[in-house]
Design a binder for these strands. Structure first.
Lengths: 347, 347
DNA sequence: CTGTTAGCGCTTTCAA
DNA sequence: TTGAAAGCGCTAACAG
C-alpha cells in the first residue's frame, strides 16, 4: 500500500544522512552566510529529498514570535467584520503573517476567553472589535501594559493605554447623512432605526442623527426612533416590522444605523405597501457589498471596512516588528474617512 | 506611571519565589496528583499573584499538539464559507480548539502556500474547500499520507486517500430543484445561470439541471445557459445582465447555481422589465441568510452550511484525538441532506 | 567554514 | 511528596 511512514523529518535526520552537524544543516537551510556553497546545496537537496518541513513551533519558542496575529470580532455573520478581516488578511499575508480569527459572539465572557487563549503566546498581537457587553476592559488594559501589540477597531468604550484605535467618525457620518435627507424639500421628518444603544458606535450614530435633526429645526419625534433588541436577523425583521406597522403616520425618510437594518426596513415598508424611495426614503450605514444584490440599490454611508482592516494590520505589524505603532508616539487613534454613497433608495 | 514591567512570568519565577523546584510548580499547576495539597495551593496562589500565563508554544513543542485547527476557504466574502466556518468554530470551541482561517482567494498558488504554512506544525489538522483552480492535489495527498488529519468539504476534485470528505449531493439537489420547476404547468423551459464549470460542484449542479430537463422531455437550449466567468460581484452582475438583455425570448424560469447568482439574476430581470415570479421564476442554491434581507424572499436549495462545518470539525477532532475520523474505517465521505425551500420567487 | 554547547519554557522520567 | 535532569526541534553564541 501507499503507507509512507508518517515519520517527521527533522534537522537531525538530514545531519545524520550527510554526516554533518545539525548547525550546519540549520545554517544551510536558513541561507546563512557562513556555509560553503557546496555544503549548502547538498543540504538543501537532501532536505528536499527527505521532504523536510521545519517545525514552526520550535522556531517560535526560540524567537518568541509566531507569525500569527489574533483577530476577535463580535460575530462572523456580519459583512462588515468579514470585510475588515479581509483587509487584515490582505496586509498580513504580504508580510508573511497569518490571522487567527475568533468570534466573541457578542458575549463578553467569550471575548475574555478568547483573549486569554491568545495571551498564552500563540499570537504576536491582537486586533479586536469589542462587544457592546464589554464593561470592564481591564483584561485588555493589562495585556497592553504587558507590552502586547493591540489594535482596537470599530466599537470601543474607553481608550486603552498603549493600544491603537482605528475607527471612523460615526457621529459626523450620521450627522451628514441625515443632513442630506433633511435638506430635501420633500423631507420634513426623519426616523431612525438602530441596534442596541449599549454599543457605542450605535449610540454615536444616534447622537449624530439627533443633532442633525435639531440643527435643521426638525423636531426629534420619539415615535420615529426604534432600536432593535435582538441580535438575530429573523427576529430583527419582526421587530422592525412590528414597529413600523404600529405607526399612525410615517416619517419621510429613515436613517438606519446599518445596511442590514436598512434592508430589513425596506422589506417591511414594502410589506406595508410603502414604496421606496417614492413614499419613504431610506439610508443605510456601512455600504456593504450585499446591498448591491438588491433591486433598488441602497443609499448608504460608505465605511472603508477593508481599509480599516489593512490599517489595523499595518499598525499592529509595525508595533510587532518595529516596536511602535507609528513614528509619533503621541497619536493613539486613526480616524478613517466616510462618504455618503447615493443610490436608489433616496431621491 | 502605570508602567508594569513587561516581564513575562515563567515557572522558574514562581519556583524561585517559593524555593521549590520547577517540576513541583509544573505539577501543581497541572493539578497533578503527586503534590502535597498545601504546596499545590501555595503555588497556585503565587502564580495568580504574579500573573502567570503558561506558554502555549512551549507546551505544544512537547505535546506535539497546538489546539488549533486550520481552515482554508476560497474566499471570505461568500456567505456559505462563513457559515461553514461558524459551524467549525462552534464545534471546535466546545472542545477547546481554535480555528486559524485562511483564504486561498480562489488561487491554487495561495492555496498551496497556505497549506505549506499549516504543515509547519502550527495546526493539528486541516479543513479545506478546494478552489476550482486546484488541479494537482499531491500536496494534500502527501499531507494525508503523513498522517495529518484532513477534512475536505464542499468542492473537491479527486478523492484523497486518508482524508475525509463532507459534502452534499449537488447533482441530485439540482435535479430535484429543476424537477420542481419543470412540473409546473406554466413552465416549458428552464434556463441556467452558474459559475465556472471548472468548479466541480458547479459542474454537478449543471449536470443535475441538464438531466432533469431531459428526463422531463424538455429540451436543453444552449441559449438559456450561462456561466459567469468573473469572480467579482459587480462584474458578475454585468455579465448576467448582458446575457439576459441579448435574449430574444425568455425561459419561464431560471435555476441558478448559487443564491448570489439568483439575486443578481432577479435584479437584472427587473431592470429588463420582467417580474419575478409572475413572468419568470427563479430558484437559487444555498439558502443563505442574506437572501432573507430582500423584498421577495428567494426560493432556494437549502444546504446545511453550519452543520457542514460542525460535521467537518467533529470528524477532524475525532481523528486528532481518537486517531480515526469514524468508528468504521471504510467510510470516507459524509453526504449531508439538502432541501428545497419554497419562498416567493416561484409560484 | 563547521562543530559543540547552551538554551527557548515546559513536561516527564528517574531518583531520592 | 519533591528535585534533578533530559529533551521537544530549533537557533545562536562560542570555539575551533
Amino acid at each position: 500500500m501507499n503507507k509512507e511512514k508518517p515519520t517527521i523529518i527533522k534537522l537531525e535526520d538530514i545531519a545524520k544522512a550527510l554526516r554533518v552537524s545539525i548547525s550546519t544543516v540549520s545554517r544551510s537551510l536558513s541561507n546563512s552566510s557562513r556555509v560553503k556553497e557546496a555544503t549548502r546545496k547538498k543540504v538543501r537537496e537532501k532536505a528536499d529529498e527527505l521532504g523536510y518541513i521545519p517545525n514552526q513551533i520550535a522556531k517560535s519558542l526560540i524567537s518568541g514570535k509566531t507569525g500569527v496575529i489574533g483577530v476577535i470580532i463580535p460575530r462572523y455573520d456580519e459583512a462588515f467584520f468579514i470585510e475588515v478581516c479581509r483587509g487584515i488578511d490582505h496586509y498580513a499575508r504580504k508580510h508573511n503573517y497569518r490571522i487567527l480569527i475568533s468570534s466573541s459572539r457578542n458575549s463578553s465572557r467569550f471575548e475574555k476567553e478568547n483573549i486569554m487563549v491568545f495571551e498564552k503566546g500563540i499570537v504576536d498581537g491582537l486586533i479586536i472589535s469589542l462587544t457592546h457587553q464589554t464593561k470592564s476592559q481591564t483584561h485588555l488594559q493589562s495585556m497592553a501594559n504587558r507590552g502586547t501589540p493591540l489594535v482596537v477597531f470599530d466599537n470601543m468604550n474607553e481608550k486603552i493605554e498603549g493600544a491603537m484605535h482605528v475607527r471612523i467618525d460615526d457621529y459626523s457620518a450620521a450627522y451628514e447623512a441625515v443632513q442630506f435627507l433633511a435638506q430635501k424639500k420633500s423631507v420634513q421628518t426623519v426616523g431612525f432605526i438602530g441596534g442596541t444603544i449599549l454599543k457605542s458606535i450605535f449610540n454615536k450614530r444616534y447622537e449624530g442623527y439627533k443633532d442633525s435633526l435639531l440643527s435643521s429645526d426638525f423636531s426629534l419625534k420619539e415615535e420615529f426612533v426604534f432600536n432593535c433588541k435582538s441580535m438575530h436577523q429573523v427576529h430583527e425583521y419582526h421587530e422592525i416590522y412590528n414597529f413600523l406597522s404600529k405607526l399612525n403616520q410615517f416619517p419621510n425618510a429613515f436613517f438606519c444605523s446599518t445596511d442590514s437594518y436598512a434592508l430589513l426596513c425596506i422589506k417591511a415598508l414594502s410589506k406595508l405597501g410603502k414604496r421606496v424611495p417614492e413614499d419613504i426614503q431610506v439610508v443605510g450605514f456601512g455600504n456593504l457589498h450585499y446591498s448591491r444584490l438588491f433591486n433598488t440599490e441602497l443609499t448608504s454611508v460608505s465605511q472603508p471596512s477593508f481599509k480599516m482592516g489593512e490599517k489595523a494590520a499595518e499598525l499592529l505589524l509595525s508595533k510587532i516588528i518595529k516596536g511602535a505603532y507609528l513614528p509619533s508616539e503621541k497619536i493613539d487613534e486613526l480616524i478613517l474617512p466616510t462618504k455618503l454613497i447615493i443610490r436608489n433608495t433616496t431621491c
